[in-house]
């Protein structure tokens, strides 16, 4: 039974990575930049929900909604203030460095407001644990909610992109900005929408993460952010199904590594797997072949 329970835990952790990785991969696909501040948006989402529950006494679901709104707004602000002026003019290196700057900025603002002591986060999930196989297999409520959220998000996002005009515009922009403009698509608005969606998802990931691992500090987002970035690259950066697959695999590998090899080495195993995958398939598992323009 322990194998099954590790697997489920792995999928649950992987679901969180997948939700975060979606933000990385969408922004990369459309703005061709790596938003290294994305992990810290998760942390901001955690603090927003924490404040709503602890200080304002709001019900968990309302707190999640507030966190989503806060992160969406912050995501769009980051894009407009910090990245947009650089996206056209400056080198991609300048944008990358700015993203690292934004990451430290968010961490330090939160540090200033909430202090460095970790807060103990109260889980937003109220549904009871599920006991299967005569109680030998215990699936926690958080796990159930996390995995189902990830599935719902994935389905909703896929439908949004294939069925709506805004979703199709995102696809068009990710492929050819100039041609997309000639169709009448406002590229800046589309990029802002992408940041909004990615950051909103980061808020959900933040709340789920803190519900499973209930310690919240200004640095909470860093490691999951990096892992989710790895997941996005692992699955093929720019590909939405790739982020999903990469996230899930990464979560499972990490938990299995912890359980069967060594809990200290689990991160090393995760990165080793990434290196091997990239050596064999440089575009990631589902990455598109980069086409040379004629």
């Amino acid at each position: 039974m322990s194998f099954l329970s590790y697997l489920i835990n792995g999928i649950s952790l992987g679901s969180v990575y997948a939700i975060i990785a979606l933000g990385y991969t969408m922004v990369y696909g459309i703005a061709k930049m790596l938003n290294f501040a994305h992990g810290d948006v998760i942390m901001v989402g955690g603090y927003a929900a924490f404040t709503c529950i602890m200080s304002a006494g709001m019900p968990p679901l309302a707190a999640v909604l507030v966190a989503v709104v806060v992160c969406t707004v912050i995501g769009v602000l980051i894009e407009t203030i910090a990245y947009r002026p650089l996206l056209e003019a400056a080198s991609s290196l300048a944008v990358l460095i700015t993203a690292i700057g934004v990451s430290y900025f968010l961490q330090n603002v939160v540090l200033l407001i909430f202090g460095s002591n970790p807060k103990s986060f109260q889980s937003v999930v109220t549904i009871p644990d599920l006991k299967l196989a005569n109680g030998t297999l215990n699936i926690s409520g958080v796990t159930i909610v996390t995995i189902s959220s990830c599935i719902v998000i994935m389905l909703a996002l896929t439908t949004f992109i294939s069925r709506t005009k805004a979703g199709q515009a995102m696809l068009a922009v990710s492929e050819d900005k100039g041609a997309a403009q000639l169709m009448g698509i406002n590229v800046n608005k589309t990029i802002a929408l992408t940041f909004a969606i990615g950051s909103g998802l980061a808020a959900i990931a933040g709340v789920l993460l803190c519900s499973a691992y209930p310690s919240l500090s200004p640095y909470t987002g860093s490691m999951p952010g990096i892992k989710a970035f790895v997941a996005a690259v692992f699955g093929g950066i720019g590909s939405i199904p790739g982020a999903f697959l990469g996230g899930l695999l990464l979560g499972v590998i990490e938990i299995f590594g912890k359980a069967y090899v060594s809990s200290q080495l689990s991160d090393a195993i995760v990165f080793a797997v990434l290196i091997v995958v990239l050596l064999v398939k440089p575009t990631g598992l589902l990455g598109k072949k980069i086409q040379e323009k004629v």
Binding site: Q168, L171, A172, E175, D176, G178, A179, K288
Partner: peptide
């Protein structure tokens, strides 16, 4: 120039 159709669509 070069058509620039959206090849993945």
């Amino acid at each position: 120039e070069g058509r620039r159709v959206f090849s993945q669509m």
